[in-house]
Amino acid sequence: MKTFERYFIALNKWALVLLLGAMAVIVFANVSLRYLTNFSITWSEEVARYLMIWMTFIGAGLALRTGGHVAVSNFQEMLGPAGQRAVRILILCLLLAFFAIMIWMGLNYMDRARFQLTPATRVSFSYIYAAMPIGFGLLIVHLLLIARSFVMENRFAEMETDAPSTTLHERAIPSIAGNRD
């Protein structure tokens, strides 16, 4: 299961990197062309907007796993350990139900918009709305992967970073960095 989770997170991260990279290239190219040649790419703003929508829905699961979404925990903190666990189970069930409803709503939007075309690229809006059920499906997977640690320990997953664990300063001056009390 850990191997699946590691690959799943890596694919999710790379999808975000590719979407952000494509958006940055398109916007940079359009701005450069506009100011250097007085020519603008007519579809760039539309495509950048839709890439941003996809990034939002695909990235929501990664934010969820680290506790990056807004949460109000005052009520939960007033309760004892058993009450806190019960509230977290309720939250988990409500989130799963909400995500499932949003998948259904997203599929409904896709069905309704399948014959409407975007203004500049003339692509079916159903491809844009597909971000919603896919993003909420990813949210369900992410939530299920962290459900046990969330319910039992109120702990979210820690994201692995590609950066080394020590800073440049700590490597340069190990005696000072190691003497923190």
Score class of each variant (00 low, 15 high):
residue 119 P to G: 08
residue 34 R to F: 00
residue 159 M to C: 04
residue 4 F to M: 07
residue 157 A to I: 03
residue 119 P to D: 09
residue 40 S to F: 02
residue 136 F to P: 00
residue 35 Y to R: 11
residue 172 A to S: 10
residue 134 I to G: 00
residue 76 Q to H: 13
residue 13 K to M: 06
residue 30 N to V: 01
residue 61 G to F: 01
residue 175 S to Q: 14
residue 29 A to K: 03
residue 21 G to E: 12
residue 113 A to H: 08
residue 166 T to S: 09
residue 139 L to P: 00
residue 19 L to C: 12
residue 146 I to P: 00
residue 130 A to L: 15
residue 38 N to A: 11
residue 83 G to C: 05
residue 77 E to K: 15
residue 51 L to P: 00
residue 162 D to W: 13
residue 152 M to N: 10
residue 35 Y to I: 10
residue 137 G to I: 00
residue 176 I to W: 07
residue 74 N to L: 12
residue 61 G to K: 00
residue 137 G to F: 00
residue 103 I to Y: 00
residue 180 R to L: 12
residue 87 V to L: 15
residue 147 A to H: 01
residue 56 T to A: 09
residue 129 Y to P: 04
residue 36 L to M: 10
residue 170 E to Y: 04
residue 17 V to R: 03
residue 106 G to A: 02
residue 156 F to C: 05
residue 172 A to R: 11
residue 33 L to T: 01
residue 133 P to L: 03
residue 153 E to Q: 13
residue 99 F to T: 02
residue 176 I to C: 02
residue 172 A to K: 11
residue 43 W to K: 03
residue 143 L to D: 01
residue 105 M to Y: 09
residue 169 H to T: 08
residue 101 I to N: 09
residue 92 L to Y: 13
residue 125 F to V: 04
residue 17 V to Q: 03
residue 19 L to K: 04
residue 52 M to Y: 10
residue 81 P to V: 07
residue 180 R to I: 11
residue 61 G to C: 02
residue 89 I to Q: 10
residue 118 T to E: 07
residue 113 A to M: 15
residue 94 L to F: 12
residue 79 L to D: 03
residue 131 A to K: 13
residue 8 F to E: 08
residue 77 E to H: 15
residue 146 I to L: 15
residue 166 T to Y: 06
residue 72 V to Y: 05
residue 28 F to G: 06
